[in-house]
Design a protein around this nucleic acid. Structure first.
Lengths: 225, 225
DNA sequence: TCGAACCATAGAACGCCGTTCGATAGAGTG
DNA sequence: CACTCTATCGAACGGCGTTCTATGGTTCGA
């Protein structure tokens, strides 16, 4: 009944607001001060739930991965393991495009988050259905995960400051870059000229898929089917 | 003849010391204060040569890429374009393993550094020797570069703090992780158990090569040779 | 030889960050 | 009611990138 003088939090609320902050403005926007302001409390309170910024990012990442696992729970039971591998990879990639910070942090994370490990295992389980040695399976999953995470992290980079400042639409953005490719010395950069038109109209997801399919084709060939 | 009262720098010296700092202690170690101390001058002086920390990293990265281009100038004239592609990719990967910060920054960098662009073009020139459409060529190079940079960045992550603190040798490190895999619930993590032994003895470079060869096999198949 | 113009250097400060410390409000318990 | 334990918070610390302003040192025309 007396007016509340102090805010009250919970780990769930902290993670939820942290993820919201990350989604809205990217990784650099997640500061303890911004987070505290959102929670309506003081900075130091957050340390009750989380012992460092790194752990906060860790937990946020694992939380998102957990949701992704739920959303894709049905993938992995199809007749063709390679098709399941593809579907899972695409789901992962989609999430990383939706949340650039997610992919970037996956890359940094070397630890053993429960849900990331579960995702790794689900991919591996598909490989176990193929006729490959354990070593081949391990290599295949590693390559695949590294490819997905690496490419997603790469493509998730925000456009340089100069474009954010100019308020240009993202579509024009590619065109401007293609123009720069064409402006290069053709003798030194023959390939850039050769593919400038492709670059100008390319779709990141399609590029991702084409590399993914190259990898999957290789895996399929190794397994002899 | 009179004692020098002020330090004197140059862009070359700034870049050289910055690279030395990065090589010795990684990206976080590159601070303007540490760099100024090395150069024997004040912090603000560095801004005469470079307008921000980002530009400093940019220039350092491009400098390293320039040297790498020189060192590998002979690659790219062999009879088999795919073999050249492979050799270039391995050279890139090696450099990124030697300099973790280099790979990590390549990932972040979306801009148009002259030497990175040259490397991209040299890879692309190999693709031009294959019988593929421009679109296929563009996709293939993108996939390849993304794979190399992504995987290298992933593998370049330093071991977690707990290991640095414990003073454990890097070899034991893998073994400890493998032990953790084995300690997981076998019903929830069947694949982790299945490949724990492989993981315990794996070699990052071999894993990289196996994925690279999957990609290259796919490209070769596309080109019909 | 002098002084103006310019290049390069640097000290000090600003604002932001993650993190720590100590105080304390409020809920639960006898 | 007193005691304990949980959770909250204001204030401060040290380090960071960056900026401002002053000034040392050099060059060069008159």
């Amino acid at each position: 009944m007396t007016g509340r003088r102090r805010a009250t939090h919970s780990l769930e609320a902290v993670l939820a607001e942290a993820i919201a902050l990350l989604d809205e403005a990217g990784e650099p926007a997640l500061t303890f001060r911004a987070l505290a302001a959102r929670l309506g409390g003081g900075v130091a309170s957050i340390y009750w739930y989380v012992s460092s910024r790194d752990e906060l990012l860790d937990r946020a990442t694992d939380e998102v991965m957990g949701r992704l696992l739920e959303d894709t729970a049905d993938l992995g039971r199809g007749p063709d393991p390679v098709a399941d591998l593809r579907a899972l990879s695409l789901a992962l990639f989609d999430e990383m495009r939706r949340r650039p910070w997610f992919g970037t942090y996956m890359l940094r994370n070397t630890g053993l988050q429960p849900n990331s490990m579960l995702m790794f295992d689900r991919l591996g389980q598909q490989l176990m259905r193929l006729d490959l040695t354990a070593k081949q399976q391990f290599h295949a999953v590693s390559s695949l995960v590294n490819y997905v995470v690496g490419v997603a992290a790469d493509m998730a980079q925000p456009p340089p400051q100069e474009f954010l400042d100019s308020g240009m639409e993202p579509d024009r953005f590619l065109a401007v870059y293609a123009e720069r490719w064409r402006a290069l010395d053709p003798d030194r950069y023959p390939f850039a000229h050769h593919v400038a038109d492709e670059f100008a109209v390319h779709d990141d997801e399609e590029v991702f898929r084409s590399g993914l399919d190259l990898l999957l084709a290789g895996i399929r060939a190794q397994a002899g089917r």
